[in-house]
Every structure is written in C-alpha cells, then in structure tokens.
C-alpha cells in the first residue's frame, strides 16, 4: 500500500511538473469563458435565474474542460506507448489513468471559484459564507465525475481522432440537453427521466443548492459521486 501511495505521489509530481509550463496561461484564458457566458445570460435571462446561470456555467465549464482534457490526454498517452512504459515500470494501468485524470482535472477546478466570484460581481448576488464547504464538496465531486467520464472515453474509444471529436461533442450535449441552466422539473415528463441519466444534471443541481448554502445539495452530491464511480468502473472494464 505504501508502495502504491508512493508511486501515486511520484506520478502526481511528474504531472504537475509537466503542466507547470502551460497551466498559468490556460487558467488566464479560461477566465474569458465564464465572463462571456455570464454577461450573455445576464442580458437574456431574468435576475431570478442568476443562481442557475452560475451553476450552469460552472457545470458547462467543468465538463467541457475535464471531459475533453482528460479523454484527449489519455488517448495521446496510449498512442505514445506511455501506458506500456508505465506498466513495465510497475505502475498499474488504473493508477496511471487515475493520476492523469486527476491532475488534468485540477486545472479545471481552479476556475470554478473564479466563475462564482465573477457571478457575484456581474450578476450581483451574494453567496453566504456557510455555502463554502458545500461548494467545495460539490466542486470536487463534479470534477471527479467529469474526469472519470473523460477517462472512460479516453480508454474506451479506439482512435485519437475519434476521442477528440466525441469528447468535445459530449460536453456540449450533456450541458445543453440536460437541465443545467434550469431545474429538472421544467423538463416535460418522459424526458425528465432521461435527464437523470446525465451526470451534468446532478452536478448543476448540487452546485445550485450549494450556492444557496442549502443542505439539499447533498443528495445531489451523492448522485454526482455515483455517476463518477460508474464511469470509473466502466473504465476499469475496458480491456486492451
């Protein structure tokens, strides 16, 4: 066990050393994404929708970044024989994928508080201090779920090109064909059940209630956790 933890630690250090050179600029440019979305929605939506604008934009951002980021990095790692290299160095495939998913996802996580702060500034809402722990939980779980979905796509789809195309697409579909900018109850009946198959539904609701500092976020958090675990299990079943 200590051995696995030590390897995990070494792999994380390795990943961060690699990300160091481009991470600051990625984060800098990422800020324009929520600014654009928040301003757009401020003009077209009523102010009562402010919380959903924030939770929806955060969900969209997390998924578009983490899913495609993780999927594409993993597919590239496969192509470059890194899985073989790592397995030959005694690192299990699952541990390697998980570390990459985690470290690729973390750059995404940095932008979530930025989205919330910008939301406060641009949309003029105040978020209670008590919301902080709930937001942290929801944000980390949403990162987990989206990274695991990315990991599944990166490992399950054969070619790099296909991974790139699907992973970009899926984030859009999951963000706009799901109740991400509005409550699930607004979805007409037969389709409402379908939306519960989408991880983004849980993520957005969890963030929405967390923004209010409401404990109602916790059941949604459980949903997020379950979707993430589902993707993790699916990934470990992919045989190559």
């Amino acid at each position: 066990m200590t051995n696995v933890l030590d390897k995990f630690w070494q792999l994380l250090k390795m990943q961060f050393k690699m990300a160091k050179s481009y991470l600051p600029s990625v984060i800098f440019f990422s800020i324009f994404f929520p600014i654009g979305f928040l301003l757009l929605f401020r003009f077209v939506a009523s102010s009562s929708a402010s919380y959903y604008i924030i939770s929806g934009t955060a969900t969209f951002y997390v998924f578009i970044n983490a899913v495609s980021g993780v999927a594409q990095i993993l597919a590239a790692e496969r192509n470059r024989g890194r899985f073989s290299l790592m397995i030959a160095s005694g690192v299990p495939k699952e541990l390697y994928s998980f570390t990459i998913a985690l470290s690729a996802g973390i750059s995404t996580l940095v932008v979530v508080p930025v989205i919330i702060l910008l939301g406060e500034l641009l949309l003029g809402i105040t978020i209670p201090l008590g919301a902080l722990p709930l937001l942290v939980i929801s944000a980390i779980l949403s990162l987990f779920s989206s990274s695991m979905l990315g990991m599944f796509m990166g490992l399950a789809i054969r070619s790099q090109r296909a991974v790139n195309q699907y992973s970009n697409l899926v984030a859009f579909v999951l963000s706009f064909f799901a109740p991400v900018y509005f409550p699930p109850t607004l979805v007409p009946m037969p389709f409402m059940y379908l939306t519960y198959l989408e991880p983004t539904t849980y993520v957005s609701q969890a963030l929405y209630y967390s923004l209010h500092g409401s404990l109602l976020s916790l059941p949604w958090d459980v949903g997020v956790l379950l979707t993430g675990m589902l993707f993790a299990i699916a990934s470990s079943l992919v045989r190559r």
């Binding site: 051995n3 390795m14 192509n79 470059r80 024989g81 073989s84 290299l85 030959a88 005694g90």
Partner: peptide
C-alpha cells in the same frame, strides 16, 4: 510488481515525456 524493478523495457513506439 517486484520483478519490474529488475527489468528494463522500451515498449514499441514509445516516446519520453516531452514536457
């Protein structure tokens, strides 16, 4: 996993970490 510490491998079409 312990035997891997005594073996060295260069897999096919493998490249070092560019960054």
């Amino acid at each position: 996993s312990s035997v891997k510490e005594r073996v060295g491998v260069i897999p096919q079409e493998c490249s070092p970490y560019d960054d």
